[in-house]
Simulated assay, not measured.
Amino acid sequence: MSIRRFDLASAKHMPWKNGTGSTAELVIFPAGASLEDFAWRISSATVGGHGSFSSFAGLDRSLAILSGEGLRLHTQDAAPLVLTARSQPWAFRGETTVYAELMDGEVTDFNLMSRRADWTHQLEMLDISGCQTLATVDHATVVMLYCQSGGPLTCRGQQVLTAGQGLLLDEDDANQTIELNAQTPSKLFLARLQHHTSQS
């Protein structure tokens, strides 16, 4: 894979598993996999009404808000969670029963899912201003960078990202220092995915 670019503007649109909306599929691994057999998947969807999340048994999910006022998320035996574009991503199990309530109009979200039996992932949002170096993490199989807002954002002096664009770095690149330079203050999603057999 080496370094691979992806872009929300050219993403493939697919129906939601529960049939009530559609998702822009940014990346799926392995390429050509279906919703039943992918190892991990990165996507974005516009949520236009209240409703329940699709169930994805055996998957771990991380959800973030790209635009809009946000969601109020209801789960069993827990207080409602408010998720906005200023919040860190919410991590949860794909089989969790979740009801999403729009706070004030539609939102666009960002979703990372990985198959729990074989993969783990962590997704975080970073504020990037000027030059910044991201710390390396041992044994990351894949690193994802996605420019949520701001930019242009230069990675390693050559890959330029604007809002809605991202990079995937494979194992050789994922475990090296990542230098970023933001011409304007930017928000960046950073994900590290690890295949269990890659652990020492």
Rank of each mutant, 00 (worst) to 15 (best):
F6K: 06
W90N: 02
G166T: 13
T162D: 14
L168S: 04
M103Y: 08
V142Q: 12
A64L: 11
L123Y: 01
G164A: 06
I65F: 03
L71M: 01
G150H: 12
P80Q: 10
L35V: 00
A140C: 15
Q158G: 10
E25T: 01
T46L: 06
E124R: 15
R116G: 10
S44K: 07
G151Y: 06
L73W: 11
P185F: 13
V47C: 02
K187A: 11
Q76L: 15
I28L: 03
F29N: 02
R192Q: 14
R116P: 09
G58S: 12
L123H: 04
W40P: 12
G19N: 03
M125D: 01
L193D: 11
G32T: 02
T154L: 14
S149M: 11
G151C: 04
Q176D: 09
S200Q: 08
S55W: 02
Q148L: 15
A79V: 06
D127E: 14
E179L: 09
Q88W: 01
G58D: 14
R115N: 01
G150V: 15
S149H: 11
L26I: 09
F6V: 09
L168K: 07
S186F: 13
R86N: 09
T23S: 09
P80G: 11
G157W: 09
L71R: 03
V107N: 06
Q158K: 13
R116T: 15
V82F: 09
M14G: 02
Q158D: 08
L59Q: 08
S54D: 05
S54F: 00
Q194E: 11
L59W: 00
E36K: 05
L66Y: 04
G48I: 10
R41M: 09
A91P: 08
T75Y: 10
V98I: 15
A191D: 07
G49L: 08
A24T: 02
W40L: 08
A91V: 05
